[in-house]
């Protein structure tokens, strides 16, 4: 059995007396994808934040590579990519400067060439030297996706990756996600609806009032060539 790279074990989170997540069990193995869907306020972003180690669980465990996500050593942090609601980009830096900064932090080999390549891949080659402050939301999302993928992470977590993207942008993002899974990356994404995630072959789960609901047979399409083996324990 392949070890899970992303794992939630009876994971719970409360803000004050209000529970946001309850007993969430989920694991994603290398080369697989899982998606969590739900309405606004269902707890999708909280789940991603907990699994990214940015927030402390109130109960249970959030693990990456089998280690507590909050206490990952720097070499393991280097292998994690996160796309959040917030772009993590500096508005007064150019697209190229933003990526070069993160390339330096992640110790990306051949940073300059890698950055130029990623800017082309997300169709921002022509805006490479423009400041992010002037970008549309869609351009910013594509650059944020490039930032998350720049260091070729083994674990990728995406909070609504298709948000703000037009049809071309969404197709580009989908191609990048397929490629990441193809090279063995474990991907966990959140979304409002299942459609695009099913097309990617992700196992789709629903968050309802903080509980992760087992996917109905029709909701999970085990589409070739890499069916998702993300499993829900509960």
């Amino acid at each position: 059995m392949t070890a899970a790279l992303i794992e939630a074990r009876a994971l719970g989170k409360s803000f004050g007396p209000t529970p946001v997540l309850r007993e969430v069990n989920l694991s994603v193995e290398a080369g697989r994808g899982a998606a969590v869907i739900g309405a606004n306020g269902a707890g999708k972003s909280t789940l991603i934040r907990l699994l990214a180690g940015l927030s402390a669980p109130s109960a249970g465990g959030a693990l990456l590579f089998g280690e507590p996500a909050r206490a990952l050593a720097p070499p393991l942090r280097r292998r994690v990519g996160l796309l959040s609601h917030q772009s993590f980009l500096y508005p007064n830096l150019t697209a190229r400067e933003n990526l070069e900064f993160y390339a330096a932090l992640y110790g990306v080999d051949g940073a300059r060439a890698a950055v130029a390549q990623w800017l082309e891949r997300v169709a921002l080659g022509g805006a490479a030297d423009a400041r992010v402050r002037g970008f549309s939301r869609g351009m910013e999302q594509r650059l944020a996706l490039a930032r998350a993928l720049l260091a070729r992470p083994d674990v990728l977590m995406l909070d609504e990756p298709f948000a703000a993207l037009d049809a071309d942008g969404a197709a580009l993002a989908a191609a990048l996600l397929r490629e990441a899974i193809g090279r063995g990356c474990a991907v966990l994404a959140s979304a409002h609806s299942a459609g695009a995630m099913e097309e990617l072959g992700f196992a789709v789960f629903t968050l309802n009032r903080g509980k992760l609901v087992r996917p109905q047979a029709s909701a999970v399409r085990q589409s070739p060539p890499r069916p998702s083996l993300a499993r829900q324990f509960s």
């Binding site: 990214a52 180690g53 940015l54 942090r77 994690v80 996160l82 959040s84 609601h85 917030q86 772009s87 993590f88 980009l89 500096y90 508005p91 993160y102 932090l105 930032r147």
Partner: peptide, 9 residues
């Protein structure tokens, strides 16, 4: 833009 989170991650 939440950059501190990216730095901490």
């Amino acid at each position: 833009n939440g950059c501190i989170r990216a730095l901490l991650m």
